[in-house]
């Protein structure tokens, strides 16, 4: 313990002491500078900013689910499966309750109840899938990686079995508007609002509730959590359920965004969400990380993706770049950890 070091640290606000967050902010500035040189008029146009807002919430929300599980010392690879299963069920409800003729709705009175039912079902199914993952992990003591891989297969399989393969298309406009519309009269995208509400809820849960703290405890040391009187099975189930609910919300957004539901949508999102959380400073061993870091990482990746599409670079270049970035982020965190360890060893 060295007292002077601590007083020196106090000069900076908390989040600026986090190397990951500083790195992300630095990278965001870098992307801005590069884009300013390459195509300033496009990147900083209002139209471009709005188009960015329409894209990130669906995977941003998934990333929060991944974040919660990783902080709890696990991983959730089934998120994309949960997302598609929820999306497929929501789409089915809408297709069956709202009768359509082309793009006109024949029974407008049913639109609102159908919409509410679809959203509720999507979230409930997400929660149920997540709780199932959590139960298997906690009760049987199996590795989260294995169980959620299995969950991915199961939920994707369910979605595929239900649809029989082809996508469900052509939902009513009211549903399409969730992810594609703006709040009337303001031009603010509805998804932005949803993302902010979800973000606020996630921040609140992780920082201000007992459950949030218990997630960190579980991830730091599951045995000590048990010996501290924390019901680890319950917390595990709740964490994956939380993740599943976020998967369900994402399911609604992506289905609405694409106006189509099938079992293989968003297949690149598993990698993307892992990249986001690792870049955002969530430690793969659990117990460490901040919502702020993940949020910034979501925005950074959206900026990069947007930069790529403005430069007319293909989706595959993005995949390639994301892979490289993931390795770079991991290497960075390993290097930072080693440095911190050395510092700690020298200080003690």
């Amino acid at each position: 313990m060295s007292e002077p070091k601590l007083t020196k640290d106090r000069r900076l606000p908390g989040f600026l002491r986090d190397t990951h967050i500083v790195t992300i902010i630095g990278l965001m500035v870098l992307v801005c500078i590069i884009m300013m040189i390459l195509s300033p008029s496009d990147f900083f146009s209002g139209k471009n900013l709005v188009s960015m807002i329409f894209q990130f919430p669906e995977y941003g929300i998934l990333a929060f689910g991944m974040m919660a599980c990783m902080i709890a010392g696990g991983i959730d690879l089934s998120l994309v499966g949960i997302m598609n299963l929820s999306g497929v069920l929501a789409a089915l409800i809408l297709k069956n309750m709202v009768q359509m003729d082309g793009t006109t709705v024949l029974n407008p009175g049913m639109v609102l109840p159908a919409l509410i039912l679809a959203i509720v079902v999507a979230i409930v199914v997400g929660a149920a899938c997540g709780a199932f993952n959590g139960f298997i992990i906690g009760y049987f003591g199996l590795p989260a990686m294995l169980v959620t891989l299995c969950g991915l297969q199961l939920y994707t399989g369910l979605a595929y079995g239900i649809t029989g393969g082809p996508a469900i298309n052509g939902m009513c406009d009211a549903f399409k508007n969730i992810a594609n519309g703006t709040i009337p009269g303001t031009g603010i995208p509805i998804v932005l609002l949803i993302f902010i509400v979800v973000l606020a809820a996630v921040v609140f849960i992780m920082k201000c509730t007992v459950f949030g703290h218990e997630i960190y405890f579980l991830g730091s040391n599951a045995k000590a959590a048990m010996y501290s009187g924390i019901n680890t099975l319950k917390v595990t189930i709740m964490t994956y359920m939380f993740s599943g609910i976020l998967g369900g919300i994402s399911g609604i957004l992506i289905t609405s965004h694409l106006n189509s539901a099938k079992s293989s949508n968003g297949s690149t999102y598993t990698l993307l969400t892992l990249l986001i959380v690792v870049l955002g400073g969530i430690h793969p061993d659990g117990g460490k990380g901040r919502v702020l870091g993940v949020t910034l990482a979501v925005l950074l990746l959206q900026m990069i993706a947007n930069g790529f599409s403005l430069m007319h670079v293909s989706q595959n270049a993005k995949t390639f770049a994301n892979g490289c970035l993931l390795i770079a982020a991991l290497v960075l965190s390993v290097v930072l950890e080693k440095r911190a360890e050395k510092k700690a060893a020298a200080a003690s």
Binding site: V210, Y216, F217, N221, K223, A224, S228, G287, K288
Partner: peptide, 23 residues
């Protein structure tokens, strides 16, 4: 292995078993 959350702060460790009373 059973008593402490080594990575977490003294505060987090101190309130780990009594966190509910701070709601």
């Amino acid at each position: 292995t059973q008593g402490l959350f080594m990575q977490r702060s003294i505060q987090d460790n101190t309130i780990a078993s009594s966190i509910r009373r701070y709601m």
